[in-house]
């Protein structure tokens, strides 16, 4: 009888504990449902309908998807996104990593100054960055031209005005803006490197290049993995720089997913194909993230430490 009461009391306590846990999870769950899950489902639903001339929405199945996938602009966007990812992510990581290493290892009194200077573009308004870089790229009257003319170089066209070079010119701006973020992630990683491991490596004769490549770089892999994941997501989210500098032009040569979705939904008023594009981007982001987590593991904090 007593044992039964104790078991029942334990069950009640367990149930009460479980309900408390759910109660704590409720606010976050509600926010997720209202601001993330519901909009995703709404957009997915919209992508299956199409608007008629009299303003009605009729079920269209996957017609919006087939229209988008057969649009040549979509494949220009895919090409641009691939270029954006494979150029910006490694270059930002490489320059950011080198900056972090030299700042942390070879500067002392001016460490804070260098960290701030290289991080400044990250916190600068994209509008300002875009305006300045448009002026830098301008031939004839531009900022770069002012310096180049001293060495006899005359820019005949603007890199963002030529369909062949526009996407690369934007990639350069993106790298300039976001390298400071990679640097910061690596600085956090370097600051958390266990000194005893580095000392042991030095005692074993590891110096300079060898210490960097065989000890420091592998130990910074959690930061690298985080940057890779964030870089892929950031690539798919690219919008303001392109919108402000080229608007996706000339002749759609620098179009990215963000500007393509914006044009379809808000400029052309075709929200159905905009929704279909958004779902396609969501699926791509999901697949890429899952592949990365599967291949690289989920230890993504800059410090790379396991949970206690």
């Amino acid at each position: 009888m007593r044992a039964g009461t104790a078991v029942q009391a334990a069950k009640r306590r367990s149930a009460s504990k479980a309900s408390t846990v759910y109660l704590f999870a409720l606010p976050a769950t509600l926010l997720f449902v209202v601001f993330i899950a519901y909009p995703i489902l709404w957009v997915a639903g919209e992508s299956l309908y199409t608007g008629t001339a009299d303003g009605r929405a009729v079920f269209a199945g996957f017609a919006n998807y087939t229209t988008i996938l057969s649009d040549p602009t979509f494949w220009i966007v895919v090409r641009n996104m691939v270029l954006w990812g494979i150029i910006t992510i490694p270059v930002q990581m490489l320059i950011g990593g080198l900056l972090a290493y030299f700042i942390e290892r070879h500067t002392h009194a001016l460490r804070g100054f260098f960290r701030t200077m290289f991080f400044l573009p990250v916190v600068t308004s994209v509008s300002v960055i875009s305006l300045v870089w448009v002026q830098i790229y301008a031939p004839y009257y531009g900022i770069a031209q002012e310096y180049l003319k001293h060495v006899g170089i005359v820019m005949m066209t603007s890199p963002i005005g030529d369909p062949k070079t526009a996407i690369y010119a934007l990639i350069v701006v993106n790298i300039w803006q976001w390298t400071g973020f990679s640097m910061l992630m690596y600085i956090a990683g370097i600051a958390n490197l266990p000194s005893e491991v580095l000392d042991a490596a030095r005692i074993d004769g590891a110096r300079g290049w060898r210490l960097g490549v065989h000890v420091i770089v592998p130990m910074l892999s959690p930061a690298t993995k985080s940057l890779l994941l964030l870089g892929v997501i950031g690539t798919l989210q690219t919008f303001p720089i392109v919108h402000l500098m080229t608007g996706g032009g000339p002749n759609r040569a620098s179009e990215v997913f963000g500007t393509f979705i914006f044009k379809q939904s808000f400029v052309l008023g075709d929200t159905a194909s905009g929704a279909a594009l958004s779902v396609i981007v969501l699926v791509i982001a999901l697949v890429l993230s899952l592949v990365q987590i599967a291949l690289l593991g989920a230890r993504l904090s800059p410090a790379g430490k396991d949970e206690p």
Partner: peptide
């Protein structure tokens, strides 16, 4: 048109240069 016109914006760049007499 000026060289590199395809990469230029009328506002604010062009309008500012025009207003400044350039």
């Amino acid at each position: 048109f000026q060289q590199g016109a395809l990469g230029a914006h009328a506002y604010p760049t062009g309008a500012q240069l025009f207003a400044q007499g350039k």
